[in-house]
C-alpha cells in the first residue's frame, strides 16, 4: 500500500466509525434486565438482614462486655468504700486524755 492508499483507507475507516448503524433495543433485553434487577433486589434484602444480624451480634457482645466490666469493678468499689469508712471512723475516735485536759 502506498501513502495515498493508506490515507484513503484511514479516511474510509474513520467515516465507517462515524456512520456505524444504530443498534435496536430488543424487548428481550429489557425483560432480562428486569429479571436481573429483581434477583439483585433479593440479594440486597439478604444483605440487609445479614447486616441486622451482625448489628445485633455486636450489641450483644458489647452488653456482655459491659456486664463483665461491672462485675469486675464492683468488689473494688466496695473495698474502697470500706477503707473510707475505716479512716472516717478512725478520725472520729477522740483521745480521752485530751478531753480531761
Amino acid at each position: 500500500m502506498n501513502e495515498s492508499e493508506i490515507n484513503n483507507r484511514v479516511n474510509q475507516l474513520m467515516s465507517e466509525f462515524e456512520n456505524i448503524e444504530k443498534i435496536s433495543v430488543a424487548s428481550e433485553w429489557s425483560h432480562s434486565l428486569l429479571m436481573k434487577k429483581i434477583s439483585n433486589k433479593r440479594h440486597l434484602a439478604k444483605n440487609r438482614s445479614s447486616k441486622l444480624i451482625y448489628l445485633m451480634l455486636i450489641i450483644f457482645i458489647a452488653n456482655v462486655g459491659i456486664v463483665f466490666k461491672i462485675g469486675k469493678t464492683k468488689p473494688i468499689q466496695i473495698s474502697k468504700q470500706e477503707s473510707k469508712f475505716k479512716t472516717i471512723s478512725k478520725e472520729l475516735l477522740v483521745n480521752p486524755i485530751s478531753i480531761n485536759n
Partner: peptide, 28 residues
C-alpha cells in the same frame, strides 16, 4: 434512556452483545 445508553456502549465496544451486557450493568 435505553436507546442512548445502548448506543453509547456500542460506540465504545463496536459489538452488540457487549453493548447489551454493559447497558444492563449501567441500569443496575
Amino acid at each position: 434512556y435505553e436507546n442512548r445508553v445502548m448506543q453509547t456502549c456500542y460506540k465504545f465496544f463496536l459489538n452488540k452483545e457487549d453493548a447489551e451486557d454493559l447497558s444492563q450493568e449501567v441500569f443496575l
